[in-house]
Design a protein around this nucleic acid. Structure first.
Length: 376
RNA sequence: GCGGCUUUGGUGAAGCGGUUAACACAUCGGAUUGUGGCUCCGACACGCGUGGGUUCGAUCCCCACAAGUCGCC
């Protein structure tokens, strides 16, 4: 029995949206699902107990960061990442590939791997499929990601083609190096913004037979419509009976459009990062809490929300005050709210899929958020 | 009462005769999508204490007044 399996519970009649269950060694989770990001073995400002209370079941953590500090060996010594961070739910670790992309200047990509300078102390470091797998085995996450290259946007065809081919070779090497039987390795579809490369990338990965597939290299600055098109192309080549994970996407409109195209899993820093910068997410759009219009607004962030902040009556006026005063409780209130909001949003999507009402849900969403409607 | 110094936006201030009055904070907006935790990007003085004067031209020079501040009696 493989560590990670996926089963479809219901396929929406009108779209490619599906409701399912992702089985892992640390529990079985209903999809579509959102994974909060805990880069350095913690979701900033939120305890694992609070995460569980707000409905999170699986979190993402980061190979790159944990590799640099505290190091794979320390986590292994602690008994793995679950024990180290005191989280008994699911964990997915990113491979470090994205950091190679976002580090930009400080790196050099070769066939064998990537040399780069640590953002912490400037020391020279090396990551490759083999090193990434070794670290990810030490961390012991339920789902581990293949070491890939996230192609910047825009990128010319030749570069995208070369990079995508290398990512495929790295996926093969990742698979060969991943020998743990209690962890499942996902391959990552790349291909830039080129339909043929996307298809080819997906096909090659499917031949290698992973327990799940991610779509990477999207939401890197391209127009929304182009992203949806590339996503559609990517998922159309993936098998139905495996989980599909769209990496790095985290706003409601993207969720809807992606689930509609067959995505089951998401992770994103957006809800937690913007919370720290004073933004609350709601069913009717964004609240920039520092705006003057909330000075005398003694309502909660969103009516009928059962997050910690709203349920206990913390008002917009008060949270605005906390942010203007640089009080850390404000960050926590918005972080808890945003994470709960996404859990609620995922639950709503699961329910409408089960009732074959996904399209109505989508239409209704755009009525409430007309500015987010994609161009035809 | 006498003498010195100071007076630029909400705040701290740069500029000291010549095109759009620097910068920072605050304020007001916007951004943020496989996370470098207080980030990034915009906007924001039609005016330089008040009134005169000199000059082609004055925040900048001169005079008077006002306010603040320090010292002396």
């Amino acid at each position: 029995m493989p560590a990670i399996t996926y089963e479809i519970i219901h396929q929406d009649k009108n779209t490619n949206a599906r409701a399912g269950i992702l089985h892992t060694p640390h529990g079985s989770f209903l999809t579509p699902i959102f994974m909060p990001v805990g880069t350095k073995a913690t979701v900033k400002g939120v305890s694992p107990e609070e995460l569980k209370d707000l409905g999170a079941r699986i979190v993402l953590s980061n190979t790159y960061h944990l590799f640099l500090r505290p190091g794979a060996e320390l986590v292994r010594e602690a008994g793995g990442l679950h024990k180290f961070m005191h989280w008994d739910g699911g964990i997915l670790t990113d491979s470090g590939g994205f950091q190679v992309f976002s580090l930009g200047e400080l790196r050099k990509i070769k066939e064998e791997g990537v040399t780069f300078r640590s953002h912490i102390d400037g020391s020279k470091q090396f990551l490759s499929p083999e090193v990434s797998m070794e670290v990810q085995m030490a961390l012991g996450a339920d789902i581990v990601m293949a070491f890939d290259e996230c192609i910047p946007y825009p990128a010319d065809y030749e570069y995208a083609k070369e990079s995508t081919a290398r990512t495929a070779r790295w996926a093969r090497r990742s698979k060969d190096a991943m020998t743990a039987n209690n962890q499942g390795l996902f391959g990552i579809v790349q291909g830039g913004m080129y339909e043929d490369l996307r298809r080819q990338s997906a096909k090659e990965l499917v031949e290698m037979d992973f327990p799940g597939y991610a779509v990477g290299g999207l939401s890197v600055g391209e127009p929304k419509e182009l992203m949806y098109e590339m996503l559609q192309v990517s998922t159309s080549e993936l098998p139905e009976n495996k989980a599909r994970y769209l990496m790095g996407v985290g706003t409601p409109d993207y969720f809807i459009e992606s689930v509609m195209r067959g995505i089951d899993m998401f992770d994103c820093v957006f809800p937690t990062r913007v919370a720290r910068n004073g933004m609350a997410m709601t069913h009717t759009g964004r609240i920039v809490i520092k705006n003057a219009c909330y000075e005398h607004d003694h309502n909660v962030l969103e009516e009928n929300c059962d997050c910690y902040a709203c349920r206990n009556g913390y008002t917009r006026s008060y949270i605005r005050h906390l942010f203007r005063s640089d009080e850390m409780f404000g960050l926590r209130l918005l972080t808890l709210h945003n994470l709960r909001f996404l859990q609620i949003f995922m639950k709503e999507m699961r329910e409408v899929i089960l009732e074959d009402k996904f399209l109505e849900f989508r239409t209704n969403f755009y009525v409430n958020n007309p500015n987010l409607q994609p161009k035809q």
